[in-house]
């Protein structure tokens, strides 16, 4: 069965390593903060200038001067630091953030990503997404494998305006976890109960299936 949003987030969180600095985008990526595996500590970076993002505040803790990049009220965890936007993007662009997780409309087999602009629709802006994909060492994209009409979002070439080129290594969809290398999607894991056949059918780009593909473990 296809994974729920929460299950995608759970699988993302399994990729977190102890001591990692991580930037989570809006939506499913943010949910991953709820599933950090026991026994490991990570620090969340919010690009408006907070390293060490804590949980949402209680009613008493609300402070208008304390928000995250999604403009939500937030708290700082113990050991956090707060800084300017230039400093924040120095961390991001300079490759100091270990993992970035973000959503996308399309990803292609060359590691290109399109996530911010649909021609003909109103463009609201890229925010920090272009800086994040240009800078992070490891980028995980979360999205559904196909759109609601069944069209694949894993393409040989992105059709929408790009957010970044040749930058995506890993994709976790509702059907599978894949790695991009050598200009192809390599199937690493299947969602429980999802067949390789279904994944092949819903992957428009070049898909490499090497031997038995294990199911995700939760």
């Amino acid at each position: 069965m296809a994974l729920s949003r929460e299950q995608i987030a759970m699988r993302v969180a399994q990729e977190f390593k102890d001591g990692s600095y991580i930037n989570l985008g809006i939506g499913i990526p943010t949910l991953a903060a709820n599933y950090v595996p026991d026994g490991i500590t990570v620090m969340l970076q919010s690009e408006n200038g907070l390293l060490g993002m804590g949980p949402y505040p209680t009613e008493e803790q609300i402070d208008a001067d304390m928000i995250n990049a999604g403009k939500e009220t937030v708290t700082a965890s113990t050991g956090a630091s707060i800084f300017s936007s230039a400093e924040s993007f120095a961390m991001i662009r300079g490759g100091h953030v270990d993992i970035t997780v973000l959503g996308a409309f399309e990803v292609d087999q060359n590691g290109n990503i399109a996530s911010w602009m649909i021609p003909g629709k109103l463009v609201k802006g890229m925010g920090g997404a272009m800086d994040l994909v240009a800078g992070a060492k490891n980028i995980i994209v979360t999205m559904t494998h196909a759109d609601k009409h069944g069209n694949s979002k894993l393409l040989d070439q992105c059709t929408l305006p790009l957010t970044g080129v040749n930058c995506i290594n890993r994709i976790i969809t509702d059907l599978a976890m894949l790695e991009i290398r050598d200009n192809a999607f390599h199937l690493l894991e299947r969602a429980p109960g999802v067949t390789v056949e279904e994944i092949k059918q819903k992957t428009a780009g070049k898909l490499v299936v090497d031997g038995d593909v294990p199911e995700m473990q939760f």
């Binding site: 949402y56 209680t58 009613e59 609300i62 208008a64 928000i67 009220t73």
Partner: peptide, 12 residues
């Protein structure tokens, strides 16, 4: 005024 754009809380 310091208006808050997205007030999100957790229960205490």
């Amino acid at each position: 005024e310091k208006r808050i754009e997205r007030k999100v809380t957790r229960s205490a």
